[in-house]
Design a protein around this nucleic acid. Sequence first.
DNA 1: GATTATTGTTTATTTTTTTAAACGATGCTA
DNA 2: TAGCATCGTTTAAAAAAATAAACAATAATC
Lengths: 198, 198
Amino acid sequence: MSNVVEHPADSLTDAELGFDLGTRLRAVREQYGLSQRELARRAGVTNGTISLIEQNKNSPSVASLKKVLDGIPLSLSEFFTLDLPSQDQVFFKARELLELAKGAISFRQVGRNLHNRKLQILHERYAPGADTGKLMLQHDGEEGGIVLRGRIEIVVGDQSRVLEAGDAYYFDSRQPHRFRNVGDQECELISVCTPPSF
Amino acid sequence: MSNVVEHPADSLTDAELGFDLGTRLRAVREQYGLSQRELARRAGVTNGTISLIEQNKNSPSVASLKKVLDGIPLSLSEFFTLDLPSQDQVFFKARELLELAKGAISFRQVGRNLHNRKLQILHERYAPGADTGKLMLQHDGEEGGIVLRGRIEIVVGDQSRVLEAGDAYYFDSRQPHRFRNVGDQECELISVCTPPSF
DNA sequence: GATTATTGTTTATTTTTTTAAACGATGCTA
DNA sequence: TAGCATCGTTTAAAAAAATAAACAATAATC
């Protein structure tokens, strides 16, 4: 009885595959080097359960899927949002940061493919007077950052503040927001946000 | 068969599941202005099913939870990663950053309550020679950062690099990793990671 | 005020999942 | 090669979830 497991190299997301929970669990389990029995022992279920789930012969209750994932360990949200095959670049020389905008405002991003990532990390520079504009930005996710030098005015919803070196911010990106360099020198900051992915 | 002590009928809540699935579903359903019956009709299940799920009186199979969410519509990953709205402090003066560690290695965090947040943003400082230790760190999530000044050696899995001002990194936090200041001056960087949420 | 919908909940019955144990296949070691 | 451990799979019985229908509470309409 040959154990043929479909493993297309370009198997990217569940959206394309129509959500193959069994294959996903098997991939995760194997990635962690666990046998069905070992995972079953840690999770407090039987090995048969895991076998049947991985073959999509039954659909586990959320409760028992949680039990299984606890044995890895992996949270439900991580399990469902997981992008399995992505071996990415880890280190980036300064010149390798991806230039997203260039001019009065400059965004230099860590990493290229945003779709596989949970974090968008930017090195931002604002020339004196530079402004993200009156039309306030608004998008899903959360964002925050720390100011490295200069003075920048940040408007979030009905709040507004001028931040200086060492100051920081954090807000829900669905609130309208705007950045403006109100100093007389260049302003620099590191920002990060969770990109809307799924 | 299991001789384990039976749990009371209503014990499918936080304790076992890690979060309150029933309340979560109810909140989402009401947010979309749907009655149990209307959602049941769209999802192709019975209203009783939804009632029982929302009371945590049974734990739906992933298959039926997916059916229910399709009626909203909402993906599984969206459902599990939903964050309850929380209005927090937006701006932080430099001195308000939360000091997590103080000594050869210093971590100063943006924001206090990590549980409601998707991002952990840190201002890290490493004294010359400072080291996160031979026991390599490993945890769920992803992380990245940008070096502001100094020289730091970062080991991720079987890869290793010395990064300098402007350089950056990004990796899956489940890979073992270690940070070490290999320069003769203090090293400073902004790091960010996705904390495990559930 | 009575009638009629619509809401969420509960209860027997059916359906599905989980268990416990056995099965065949593979790999290791003496 | 034989013996033994481990792997994933399969199957009858037990446990749990989904259904269908009845139940109670509230709001709307006549």
